[in-house]
Design a protein around this nucleic acid. Sequence first.
DNA 1: CATCATAATCTCATATTAAGAGATTTTTAT
DNA 2: ATAAAAATCTCTTAATATGAGATTATGATG
Lengths: 252, 252
Amino acid sequence: MKPKNSLERVLAVLEVFSEERLEWTPEDLMRELGYSRPTLYRYLKTLKDAGFLMSTRNSGVTLGPKVVEMDYLTRRSDPLVLLGVPYLKQLTAAYSCTAMVLRWYGSKILCVASESSTRNPISSYPRGRPMPLGRGAIARSILALLPRPRLVPLIERNLADLRAVGLGDTADDVLKSLRKVRKAGFCVAYGEVTPGAVGIAAPVVDDRDYPVASVCVTIAGNLVTGAQIDQIGAEVRRVASQISADQASGKP
Amino acid sequence: MKPKNSLERVLAVLEVFSEERLEWTPEDLMRELGYSRPTLYRYLKTLKDAGFLMSTRNSGVTLGPKVVEMDYLTRRSDPLVLLGVPYLKQLTAAYSCTAMVLRWYGSKILCVASESSTRNPISSYPRGRPMPLGRGAIARSILALLPRPRLVPLIERNLADLRAVGLGDTADDVLKSLRKVRKAGFCVAYGEVTPGAVGIAAPVVDDRDYPVASVCVTIAGNLVTGAQIDQIGAEVRRVASQISADQASGKP
DNA sequence: CATCATAATCTCATATTAAGAGATTTTTAT
DNA sequence: ATAAAAATCTCTTAATATGAGATTATGATG
């Protein structure tokens, strides 16, 4: 997993930025990445000139405006966003809720589109914030479709969380639970990510039935009955499979 | 301006994506950038693995999810966003308008934060979309503070637009107009970017009085009188200089 | 399902150029 | 004005990025 060529080494600089560490000094970067002083400064200069990084007043660096510009372009080009948003609007029109499309990439779940019809949306996962793998309907709707060899290590890495939300004590139990999710075609979770919020999610798949995203409706728990949840679930599943089909056929 | 080292050459791949061209085929990239087939594919592989690009179904590439993730981090780290948003909320609470902070970077103006208190905001420039340099209060509020040698080529490149909005016929006339803007400390424009919308903008500067951003209030023209515009202008100027001060002192 | 067309990867010799130690210059703080 | 810290420069050497062409995947089509 260690960067080999100089291309990967430059990009590795951008990898170290995280919610926990939004700003880095050259000194710390040298230590973290093991680059020599001239090399690191060369990299930083290149990345700053391209707008990926910018300097802070304390001679540190942060992510820069080029990122903002590219994200705007992503909003206009990502097929899941373009296809998804109209459906999300349908869902938020029908229910007082937050509706989202979340991408499965690397081993992360990332919100890419979000619509709300409630005054103060309860979701704490806006566009771009990675979601936990071990909690919530979204994660499970995706995990349920992963091939076993890919799935097992992920389960093991998140077993504590998965256990906490009652998916089973052992990895095998979790696998069994996920098989049920797979069969149902959607997944419901009560307050696992946000207290008081019910999550209802269904997977979006590519032409090989591999999961690429999830559609999720988040709604205040005290607003819905069990029957309504089933109804919403069916609708979310419909939307997700619709997006899957649109996507596979190159709709937009 | 041509990329020299391999670092810049990889990053140049990301530069070709624009609102006009959101998807590229390897073939077109080879032609556009002049890279050989193996080299280009090597670059694409690296960028895809890092999540900066992703493949489309027609064997093309688009910007990828890593961009989305980084933008989220940018929203949490950019001092102008962090400092600016509370002020923007003040402004939108006081008037029925859209209030924004826009960065000056490269030779572009980029919205980085935006708040609205109107039902259907009229602004067509959301976060990440570059604004034209020759039109609007925002552009002028920034141009007015640029040192002459930096400014003149920009004026010449945008003279058609600048003339169209009545800034003057020659570059010299434009310079004179900008001097007035500089003196006033804020700038007003009527429907230059969006028909029917009045833009009121003031510059944010660094500790050397170099412009780094602009604060702008956009409001429907039929909602405000001349006197109110002056009042808003004073307030926008106050906010901009407040952000400038906060920023220079490392407030957040 | 075989065949063809297109897309992507591989091989390998060579020239290019990244890298780093250490010195030097520039910037910032006091 | 002076010291401390930050950033850049120089130059040699080893490392590696490059591209022509061949090869292998992948996908489309009848």
